[in-house]
């Protein structure tokens, strides 16, 4: 059936559409640098988790099908630990893990058109040593990955990712303090969430208005749970990952309370 090239291309095209459809509406993950390292932020239903510790200086946020997220998460952890044990913690870098192991495997899964594809996207972060830039990698469901040192965004659609990046460029964090960075991350998340939950305008979605963003945030604050974690260079422990507690992210609820239109709802 797939022996003719155009049929195979069609199959791949169908696969992309299928995965994108499944990923639409997934809660985005935002990564930003702050004073002591890097912050990862997302929102998820009560009792669920999307942000994970991978290794001493590595963390990831995954969106998509939980079984696929879990499979790739375990792969990253297994690789990082065997490599760190056999060589050294300093040899465990995201560039190597992605380049030589994870990305090729995801690509292979994607190419096997008779098998279920990986329905997941990842934002991975590697805490730099002092004086270097922290790197954020995004890994797509087809095995493509890219990195930035200023921020990282993974959302269900690329349209949402673009608008989130644009929101961040227009409204960067007020300072590099944790609270300010978290608040910026929350607003960027909300833009992505608005875009991907808009069921009418898929192809060229507009930047959501402040009122829409505020309404979505109030809805999310009532129904869902904020999840944030840091890779904290200041901690004495070799493992730099720390999931933030409710009191660490309390300022986000204050911020939502002060957004326009709050009194009417």
């Amino acid at each position: 059936m797939y022996d003719e090239p155009h049929r195979w291309l069609q199959a791949v095209e169908n696969r992309i559409q299928y995965v994108e459809k499944r990923l639409r509406g997934a809660s985005p993950v935002v990564g930003l640098p702050y004073k002591d390292g890097a912050v990862l932020f997302t929102v998820c239903p009560h009792g669920q988790q999307k942000l994970y510790e991978v290794y001493d200086r590595l963390a990831l946020g995954g969106l998509g099908h939980p079984a696929d997220v879990e499979r790739l998460r375990m792969m990253a952890i297994n690789l990082a630990h065997t490599e760190g044990f056999a060589r050294s913690a300093a040899d465990v870098t995201l560039q190597r893990l992605l380049n030589f192991a994870i990305a090729p495997q995801v690509k292979t899964s994607f190419d096997e058109v008779f098998r279920s594809p990986v329905i997941a996207k990842f934002l991975m972060v590697e805490l730099a040593h002092a004086g270097e830039d922290t790197r954020f990698f995004t890994l797509n469901f087809d095995g493509n990955f890219s990195s930035r040192d200023t921020f990282g965004i993974a959302a269900g659609t690329h349209q949402a990712e673009e608008l989130m990046a644009s929101r961040l460029a227009d409204h960067p964090p007020a300072s590099d303090a944790l609270d300010d960075v978290l608040q910026a991350a929350l607003m960027v998340w909300a833009v992505g969430h608005c875009v991907d939950s808009n069921s009418t305008q898929y192809d060229d979605p507009p930047m959501p208005s402040d009122e829409e963003v505020a309404a979505k945030l109030r809805e999310a604050a009532a129904k869902l749970e904020f999840e944030a974690a840091v890779l904290d260079r200041a901690t004495a422990s070799r493992a730099k990952f720390r999931a933030l507690e409710a009191e660490d992210i309390a300022s986000l609820h204050t911020l939502i309370g002060e957004l326009p239109g709050g009194d009417e709802t």
């Binding site: 879990e70 499979r71 375990m74 792969m75 297994n78 690789l79 065997t82 490599e83 190597r96 893990l97 030589f100 192991a101 495997q105």
Partner: peptide, 11 residues
């Protein structure tokens, strides 16, 4: 990186 297939299949 040395990655036996088992690490991917048997997680």
């Amino acid at each position: 990186l040395t990655l036996p297939p088992s690490l991917w299949q048997h997680t």
